[in-house]
């Protein structure tokens, strides 16, 4: 049974020591993911805030960033690797940043755009300057979608960082490629399980972080929307 073999591979002490051990690969995988998401956030969040707030160039920028989604990561990694004469770290990081920018940009932009027009109008009418409006009203209200974008980006980056193994980086993609070459499914499944666990773990962490940063009033509003809906449906049935 393949999953039993995978568990055996995961628990084999041989895989837990040395430069190519599971902990090292988890660490490398994690570092690349954090670097990529952080780098992408530094680009995409300010950009998303700016175009969302000013409404300038939004359609164009979000559209072209969506075109980035079509860029095959494997192609980009191999391209950058050859162009940079084999500098693995930078080529992989750039490719992963490119992968993470579109969801974060889209989340940030949509978050700002989604803020109730009445709320923004009221903020303006009460005498907030442009930057006060952005930091005190638009950004807090955009946080649910912004965090959603970050979570999407993280999931994609964690799954795709395995491709980095192809250009020789010791991420969790290594056991996938090694196992594939020698048809050792235990290793492939073991590696996949580790990547999945990492993805789930990071997603949970981000979900928790979201709970901490998203203002309570917005979480209550989301709950109310969920709760009210079935009631409305029931009422309609009664009337009809």
């Amino acid at each position: 049974m393949i999953f039993a073999d995978a568990i055996a591979w995961l628990l084999d002490p041989v895989n837990w020591s040395g430069a190519k051990s599971i902990p090292v690969r988890v660490g490398v995988h994690l570092l690349y993911c954090l670097g990529a998401v952080l780098g992408a956030s530094l680009i995409a969040v300010p950009l998303g805030l700016y175009i969302g707030h000013t409404g300038r160039g939004g359609v164009l920028l979000v559209g072209s960033s969506n075109a980035l989604r079509a860029l095959p990561t494997l192609g980009l990694v191999t391209f950058l690797y050859l162009v940079m004469n084999g500098v693995q770290t930078v080529s992989v990081l750039i490719a992963l940043v490119v992968l993470a920018v579109p969801p974060i940009l889209a989340g940030t932009y949509a978050g700002i755009q989604d803020v109730d027009r009445g709320v923004v109008d009221a903020a303006r009418g009460m005498g907030m300057t442009g930057s006060q409006r952005l930091w005190r009203v638009e950004l807090p209200n955009a946080l649910p979608l912004l965090v959603g974008g970050l979570r999407n980006a993280t999931l994609q980056v964690v799954a795709t960082a395995s491709v980095a193994a192809y250009v020789g980086i010791e991420t969790l993609g290594r056991p996938l490629l090694d196992g594939l070459r020698v048809l050792d499914y235990a290793q492939v499944v073991g590696g996949a399980v580790l990547i999945a666990l990492l993805a789930v773990g990071l997603d949970l962490l981000l979900a928790l972080a979201g709970k901490l940063v998203i203002p309570r009033g917005l979480r209550l509003a989301a709950e109310t929307r969920r709760r009210v809906k079935p009631v409305e449906e029931a009422e309609v049935v009664d009337v009809v």
């Binding site: 795709t160 395995s162 993609g173 492939v188 590696g191 999945a196 993805a199």
Partner: peptide, 8 residues
Amino acid sequence: YTIPSLAL
């Protein structure tokens, strides 16, 4: 969604 495509 957490399973990398390569693994799948």
